[in-house]
Amino acid sequence: MAKYEMLVGLEVLDDVVYSQYRTAMRPILEEKGGEFGYDFRVSEVLKSEVTECINRVFTLRFPSKSIMTSFFDDPRYQAVKSEYFSPSVGSFTIIRGYDVDECHF
């Protein structure tokens, strides 16, 4: 079954507050069936298609694109974003969004 995944780049300015954001938003994310796939701290960007700085890259996966939209539109998520994400992140870039088929090895 296909899922919808986003590859995201951030400029995290405050790791402590950003960690609080991750903790606060995770129950909402999991309630919607979402999950993080990969998560990297990036020390050097060799090529970019945007001018914004990127020091964190991760994937975020949802059962569908419409569920992803409902997650980001959820008033509870918006409150968490306002309290923790906005003050801890300088910029964010949606690098790509795409459908993925789950592989079972």
Score class of each variant (00 low, 15 high):
residue 1 M to N: 02
residue 1 M to G: 13
residue 1 M to E: 11
residue 2 A to N: 14
residue 2 A to H: 13
residue 3 K to N: 11
residue 3 K to W: 07
residue 4 Y to L: 09
residue 4 Y to A: 00
residue 6 M to H: 04
residue 6 M to Q: 12
residue 6 M to T: 11
residue 8 V to G: 08
residue 9 G to W: 10
residue 10 L to D: 07
residue 11 E to Q: 13
residue 12 V to A: 03
residue 12 V to I: 14
residue 14 D to S: 03
residue 15 D to N: 13
residue 15 D to V: 13
residue 15 D to S: 14
residue 16 V to W: 10
residue 17 V to E: 13
residue 18 Y to R: 04
residue 19 S to D: 14
residue 20 Q to I: 00
residue 21 Y to I: 01
residue 21 Y to W: 07
residue 22 R to G: 07
residue 25 M to K: 08
residue 25 M to H: 01
residue 28 I to E: 05
residue 29 L to P: 01
residue 31 E to K: 15
residue 32 K to C: 11
residue 32 K to S: 04
residue 35 E to V: 01
residue 35 E to N: 01
residue 35 E to F: 00
residue 41 R to P: 00
residue 41 R to G: 03
residue 42 V to W: 05
residue 42 V to L: 12
residue 45 V to I: 12
residue 45 V to P: 02
residue 45 V to F: 00
residue 45 V to L: 04
residue 46 L to Q: 10
residue 46 L to G: 00
residue 47 K to W: 04
residue 47 K to L: 11
residue 48 S to E: 05
residue 50 V to C: 09
residue 51 T to R: 10
residue 51 T to K: 11
residue 53 C to A: 10
residue 54 I to H: 06
residue 54 I to T: 13
residue 55 N to F: 08
residue 56 R to L: 03
residue 56 R to Q: 08
residue 58 F to M: 11
residue 58 F to T: 02
residue 59 T to A: 05
residue 62 F to G: 02
residue 63 P to M: 09
residue 64 S to C: 13
residue 65 K to N: 04
residue 67 I to P: 02
residue 68 M to Y: 14
residue 68 M to N: 01
residue 69 T to L: 11
residue 75 P to I: 15
residue 76 R to A: 14
residue 76 R to K: 15
residue 76 R to H: 10
residue 76 R to E: 15
residue 78 Q to D: 10
residue 84 Y to G: 04
residue 86 S to V: 10
residue 86 S to C: 02
residue 86 S to Q: 11
residue 86 S to L: 15
residue 87 P to M: 07
residue 87 P to Y: 07
residue 89 V to Y: 11
residue 89 V to E: 06
residue 89 V to R: 12
residue 90 G to A: 09
residue 91 S to M: 06
residue 93 T to D: 05
residue 94 I to R: 05
residue 95 I to W: 11
residue 97 G to C: 01
residue 98 Y to V: 08
residue 99 D to Q: 14
residue 101 D to A: 03
residue 101 D to R: 12
residue 101 D to C: 03
residue 101 D to F: 00
residue 102 E to T: 14
residue 103 C to I: 14
residue 104 H to R: 10
residue 104 H to P: 00
residue 105 F to R: 07
